[in-house]
Design a protein around this nucleic acid. Structure first.
Lengths: 138, 138
DNA sequence: ATTAGTGGTTACTTAAAGGTTAGTAGGTTA
DNA sequence: TAACCTACTAACCTTTAAGTAACCACTAAT
């Protein structure tokens, strides 16, 4: 896919293309470190779709518990993706808002969404083929 | 970002834009389920860069243990990303090859790589700003 | 006064992921 | 023959992620 031309071997280093590969590997593991895990992207997506209250998020992101949502929101705030906004008033309202930095994830989220949809389709097709071929097996 | 027009509430369902959001959420969680975790993408990247032997992969994907590499390779094979090829010969050689389906991940991997690099830069900048502002704090 | 909802926190527990060490079965090197 | 390399696997242990349940402070309705 990519062309391998640099190939400047450090004396003592193994066979070729280690450095360029290592850079990519590092970047991907950085990304996974910050937005990996089951919930972080899901919360950001739900927020991008208009959910900003704690209970809204808990309903939209099905399966998440209050404890996990709470701690994930703190992580996301610490990493500069969201901000917690407390509005004083008769009922104090708390809202979570996306910060501009969360928009840098758009491309990634879209790519992941496309791939996930595509993959689900693939699995569905495979299952139907398998079912029609061997229907009697356990 | 996206326009909200469908809004066909199922009677009994909550307030708006739940379905479109749910689709995206489902797709993303599907993707995370298959390629999430610390290692799967890293292994695919290392393979795309020319590594095909077990020990090569273990060297390139720094930090992975033999046990984990072995089980991840099995997962990747079961999901149709790679194939294990055993070549009979005086020393039997075992090679792992990417299957065409792994190419569907290209867009996603590129997006993740770009984001990861960008993020590392951001952190670096933030750290240098903080250091120059308050250097004496604990 | 009781009940219910919001927005959490804390403590406890379980489940999953990953690491460590050792060992095996084959082959090669010296 | 000993020591080392490849490609693992098994057993065991630690760490992290996530789930459960209870509880708190506040509001609002009955």
């Amino acid at each position: 896919m990519e062309d391998i031309e640099t190939k400047k071997l450090i004396p003592g280093e193994g066979k070729g293309f280690t450095e360029e590969c290592t850079k990519v590997l590092l970047a991907v593991s950085d990304a996974l470190y910050v937005i990996g895990g089951k919930w972080k992207l899901m919360i950001i997506i739900a927020m991008a779709r208009g959910n900003s209250r704690f209970t809204e998020l808990q309903k939209q992101v099905t399966g998440i518990s209050a404890r996990v949502l709470s701690s994930e929101l703190k992580d996301l705030e610490a990493n500069g993706f969201i901000i917690k906004r407390v509005t004083a008033g008769y009922p104090v309202t708390i809202e979570y808002e996306l910060l501009p930095y969360s928009q840098t994830l758009e491309e990634l989220v879209e790519a992941m969404t496309r791939w996930g949809m595509q993959h689900r389709e693939k699995i569905k097709k495979e299952r139907s083929i398998n079912n029609s071929l061997q229907d009697t097996s356990v």
